[in-house]
Each structure stands twice: as C-alpha cells, then as structure tokens.
Design a protein around this nucleic acid. Sequence first.
DNA 1: CATGAATGAGGTTTCATTCAT
DNA 2: TATGAATGAAACCTCATTCAT
Lengths: 188, 188, 188, 188
Amino acid sequence: MAAEELRADARSNRDQILAAALSVFRERGVDVPMKEIADRAGVGVGTLYRRFPDRDALISAAASAYLAGLADAAATAWREEPDAWAALARFLRECVQKGVGGLSSAIEPVAHSRIRADPELIEVRGTVTDLINRMTARAKADGTLREDIGPADIAKLMTLQIYTRPGESHPEAIDRVVDIMLNGLRAR
Amino acid sequence: MAAEELRADARSNRDQILAAALSVFRERGVDVPMKEIADRAGVGVGTLYRRFPDRDALISAAASAYLAGLADAAATAWREEPDAWAALARFLRECVQKGVGGLSSAIEPVAHSRIRADPELIEVRGTVTDLINRMTARAKADGTLREDIGPADIAKLMTLQIYTRPGESHPEAIDRVVDIMLNGLRAR
Amino acid sequence: MAAEELRADARSNRDQILAAALSVFRERGVDVPMKEIADRAGVGVGTLYRRFPDRDALISAAASAYLAGLADAAATAWREEPDAWAALARFLRECVQKGVGGLSSAIEPVAHSRIRADPELIEVRGTVTDLINRMTARAKADGTLREDIGPADIAKLMTLQIYTRPGESHPEAIDRVVDIMLNGLRAR
Amino acid sequence: MAAEELRADARSNRDQILAAALSVFRERGVDVPMKEIADRAGVGVGTLYRRFPDRDALISAAASAYLAGLADAAATAWREEPDAWAALARFLRECVQKGVGGLSSAIEPVAHSRIRADPELIEVRGTVTDLINRMTARAKADGTLREDIGPADIAKLMTLQIYTRPGESHPEAIDRVVDIMLNGLRAR
DNA sequence: CATGAATGAGGTTTCATTCAT
DNA sequence: TATGAATGAAACCTCATTCAT
C-alpha cells in the first residue's frame, strides 16, 4: 500500500483513481464496473489494473484511504474542539455526514481479511480506537456524556446511516438525526 | 401485482419466491443472480420468470410485500401498545431490527417509479404515513415526544442502520442504538 | 467427466464441443480463443462454459477423450493384427499420424494434475500401458522386435512428431519417417 | 536484420534479447507475453521494441539466428567428423537435442513470409540444404546410408520431436530415439 | 406448468504497443 | 537511449433472459 517510489505522474494517477473509487463506491456500491471508476479518474482501465491488480486490491486500498481519513477527522476534532463533548459531537457528525457506514458495508465484506492483515491499517485503526477511548472517557469525566455509554457504542454510532434517495443528499436531515442521537447521548 | 386467481401451488411458488427474494436482497443486495433467488426458493429459474417477468418486477413485488409488512407492524403497534410513545418506540425498534433502511436502499433505486405508480402501494404507503402522523401527534399531546420532532423525522429514523458484519446480527447492539435515539426523542 | 444423466441435446452439444476442441487444439494449440471452439462446435460460448466451467476443465476433458481413443486404437490393433509386430507397427503409425505428440504437448501442461487425479483416466492410461507392455514382450518373444527395446521406448515413439507446415498434412512423409523408425526397431 | 552499425551496449542488448526469445519460444511457444522476454533478457519492454518493431520482427530475427546456428552445426559436423555417416549422425542428433522441430513449429507460422524474403536467410538456408545434400550423397556412396533415403527425408528427420514434460529435459531418452532412427537409416 | 439448457451482451482482466520521463 | 507507465483492443467469463423438453 505504501507505494514507496512512484513516478510523479503515476503517483497522481494512483491518487485520482483512489479518490474516484471512494466516491463511486459511496454512491453506487462496490459492484460498479471498473470502467466507470477509470473514467471518473480520467485514466484507461489498463492503468487502473496496473495500479491495483484486481477489484479487491482496489477496494482494500480504498479502505485504507478512508480509514486514514477517519483517523484524521478524529485527531482534528480532538485537537481543535474546546472540550471532549464537542470533539465527540463533531467527529460523529462528520462520520455520519461522510457516510462512513455506507462505505463500511460496501468495503468491509471484500476487504476484511486484507484489512486485518495490513500493518499500516492496523495502526490507523488503533489510532481511531484510541482517540474514541479518550474522547469517551474524558466526556464522561466532564459529566457531559452518559455514564452508561462506552466506546463500543460510539463505534457503532459512527456508522449510523439513514436512507437517502441515491444521488440526493440531505445534510440537514442527517443533521437533525445526529442532533437527536447526541441529545440521546448527553448526560443530564 | 395482485395475482387475483392463482392455483394453490402457483400461489405457494409465488410466495416462496417473494420470501426468498426478500431475504436474499436483505443479505446481499439486489445485485444477486436470479438463479440464487430461484435456488433459495426451491424452484427453477423458469418458474421465477413465469411469475415475475423480469428482475425489476420481482424487486417491486418484493417492495410491495415489505411495505405491506411495515403497515402491519405500525397498525399492530398502535393497536396493542398502551400509549402513543410505546407504539412509536415499538414500531421504530421493529423497523430498525428488520432492516427497513437496508431494504429501502436496495429496493428503491430500481423500483421507485413502479412504487409511485402502483395504486395498491400508494394506499399502503398512505396507511403508514397516516399512522406515523397519528403516533407523532398523540405522543406530543401526551407530552412524551419532544415538541420539535415531526413525522418526517420519524420517517427518517425508521430507516436507521448501523454497520454490522454481513451475516452476523447483533440485535442487542441495535437495541442500544435505538434506545439512545428514543432517549434523544423523549420530551423532558 | 462421466456425465451420467444428460438431456439428449445437451449430450450432443457436449460431444460436439469436445470434438471441436480436440481438432482446434491439434491445429492451433490450446491458446485458442474459447469463442473459436464454440463456433466450430456450433454453440454459443455460454453453452461451452456451462458444460466446462473453465478452459482447464475443457482441456482436461479433451485429454480424457483423446486418451480413451488411444486405448481403443491399441486394443483394436492388438485384436485385429495377425502378430505382435504388426500390432505394434499399426499402433505406432496411428499414434504418429493422429498427432498424439502434438496433443500431448498442447494438453498435458495444463491438465497434468487433473489427469493424475481422474480415476477414469488412470484406468485408461493403465490399459494403454498394459497393451504396450504386452505388445513389446510378445514381439520380442517372436523375435521381431530388438531385444534392447523396452515399453518406455515405445511410449516415447508414440509421441513422435515431425514438423509440418501448419494446415498442410503430409501423411506419406510421416509414413516414411515411421517406416524408418520401425526399420530401426526391427530385430535382425 | 543485419544491424550493421550498433554501439557495443546496444549490440549486447540485441543479442541478449534474441537469446532470451529463443529460449522462451522453445519453452513456452511464441504466444508468450513480450514482457516475459524482456524480463528474461534483463531489459525493459521499451528496449525490446526499439530493437524489434513488433512481435513478428522478433520472431523472424530469432528464426534467423537459429537457422544460422543450424548451418554452423552442419558445417562443423561435416568438417570435424571422419566420414559422412558420422557427420550425418552428429548433425541429426544435435538437431533433435536442440529442439529444431519445436522451434520450427513455433516460429515458422509467423515468420514464414519474412524468411522467404530475407536474402541473408535464403543464403543460410541454401547452405544447410547444400550440406545435407552432400552428406546424403557421400554417405550413400560410402554404403553407410540406405539407398532409398533422400535429402528430403533427412530434412524431415531434423525436425523430429518426442514429447517431453515441459521444463524437464531427457537427453538420454532423446538419444535412444535418435539411435533407433539412425539404426533405421543405416544401410546393411 | 416446471425445468434447466442455450444464448449473447456486458463486465473483468490481460497484454501488445506507444510514449512521456 | 533505456525505462516502465498508459492505453485500448481483445480475450475471458458470468448471468439475465428465452425457449425446447
């Protein structure tokens, strides 16, 4: 996954393919024709296959990228928000808005074994888990998060989805649901 | 769709195919080979195609069946539960546990136009909407549901999903999430 | 391989595909497009794939058929010819004329493991070996075959090939070469 | 084909590619990926294509090289061996051991027209034919070769092949077959 | 009426060849 | 000049749908 040395153009192609894959997967699931992804990335199928030897390789690379993004989001929230509750709220909202759940269900079935094996991914996954643990603990200590909520609950809530007509996006509708959820998590 | 007159065995075939389709769709999405569904139903592909002229017809018949089930669930909850809040809670819990959201996203993209057109379905859909309206209004009147929550919010929450490893089912985990949502909906 | 119960038309298709494969393999090697074989057999690719799940399955079925033919040839020669030398001569000539060597090199690399495993094939192979052993022993006893020639030599000679412009066939040229070999095998 | 003026390193590249091609063709036929040949030669595909504009050009260059080798072998045998029979025997043995037949069938179909056209090759071919003619005539004169054998028979026998498991080589088995053949050619 | 065989269009993957680095 | 990345045509294989049994 590391792609140590890669010519500049190849590198850029790789990135574009990954971005294309991620967005196509989110929109239409993983069963999308490879040509579709190649087109969206602006490369030929051949290039796609040179970079990712088969569909599963692409999926699992996409999983990598998206998990890394997740770790980023968690870290940023933790760093920038004034308190643990705010960090948790922001992180969860981002996860739901970005469709973490949809990507998970699209990606995991295929990539599961690879994800477990890839050392780089194990680390990222560890980072996320770690940050969730800290946010949860601190928020409880602050008295802002219900005492009976644990990190496992938060992990589940990250993957929350509500049905949206495909193609349409309803950020406000999602926000309302996230608000309800947060309200349900808040200690009184 | 009505299947007015059908010999007993044909009727039974139809039902078995529908049940098979519903469960396969839930497990693996709508992109499953028709043979798979036929096998699960214990009939040949030919039989499946005799009953449902093409994939879309099957999907939309499945949508019908599932929507009808939903109306049933709503009506039963309304009838059997002691108050509006309990009915709402039970109905939402059932929807989430039964994977309404998953089926919606699997089925709607293909069946959307048909669903809009089919008079029988329009009626069922009306029933559900109606019951949700009543539950919401009554629960607010009872002072158990937050004043700022409307039927549209409930409709969204019906389709709540959280990611579960495919094949595995975690009813308790889902229950915890539903509890959190309900807690977030409750008026204080 | 046995294909116990097969509808009449399916059976006939299977046979035609096998015959087509055999002749195409002989002419152009095993790397021929599947479509080519399907066309020659007068069926669609789908049918070919329904009968033989992938290229290797087809190749190894072809191996079966051709080995069975070989056993037949050996048995017939042994039965019909007046003495062991005549049987041996006829069998070798047939093998070379029919291009056993060409088929072997086309087929074996791919089908080797299957050939070793298939019980039916093991038996046929045993029959051939057995007949060669008998022919060799008897011909030596008759004083027609050189004493220092063993069954392994005969087995090698079965796969004799000489280069022929592809497409063209030169039965007489082959016959001359076989005559020379036989002359070299004959005891004096 | 001559590659009149070529820098030393380019020359060496050309030779390595040719050698690689020859050995790959012998092992796996001409349908091998170009990358395979480039790898074996230790150069990039680009280099291969710079030297040989397309696959056919490479094949026919390989044909050239191998035919030249053949002429060499014939000349050496003629020069070094004490009599015509010994020369013939040695030449035939070398041809069979070196797999002339295999290369012929791999190369000729593609390169045929070029071989016919290339003046250099016409000459080499002439040399070989000439030497075979001489060996044959002389051996018959010596009373060592059967009277009814002609140069055309020898030409066919040069391309003799027996099936060998790919990868494995059985020089002794081949030797035994060649011995039988020579025994069949010998006058008594 | 039920079945499963046949078909071929369409998605997947490979590889010859070209071309930017 | 050597390299290996990009491309797309062509091969592989699957599966929706039709149709003979």
